[in-house]
């Protein structure tokens, strides 16, 4: 399946600086958490994820055509 992965802010370092990746995966189904493991993004560095702009948890199943946005943790204000 084809998906779009968007890594925000400092998380881009896990994709060598690329913020947006168009990916073609062998699987037809996997979770957000499994996708993040593939790029070695520690979940402790993630504040929350969105699938197609909707806030979801890390167990959310991804389907073909989805856009996954991964937001970093933030402190201060």
């Amino acid at each position: 399946m084809e998906i779009t992965l968007l890594l925000k802010g400092p998380l881009k370092k896990y994709t060598d600086g690329a913020e947006l990746l168009e990916l073609e995966l062998d699987e037809n189904e996997l979770t957000v958490s499994e996708l993040l493991q593939r790029f070695k993004v520690p979940t402790s560095s993630v504040s929350f994820v969105q699938v197609n702009n909707a806030k979801k948890d890390l167990n959310q199943l991804i389907k073909g055509g989805d856009t996954i946005t991964v937001n970093p943790r933030v402190a201060g204000g």
Binding site: K8, G9, P10, S45, K55, P72, R73, G77
Partner: peptide, 21 residues
Amino acid sequence: DDNMWAYSDGTPMIVDLSQST
């Protein structure tokens, strides 16, 4: 990672976070 958002983007990054939530 916990702090480098301040360098990579700074506080404007919060606009997208606030919009999406």
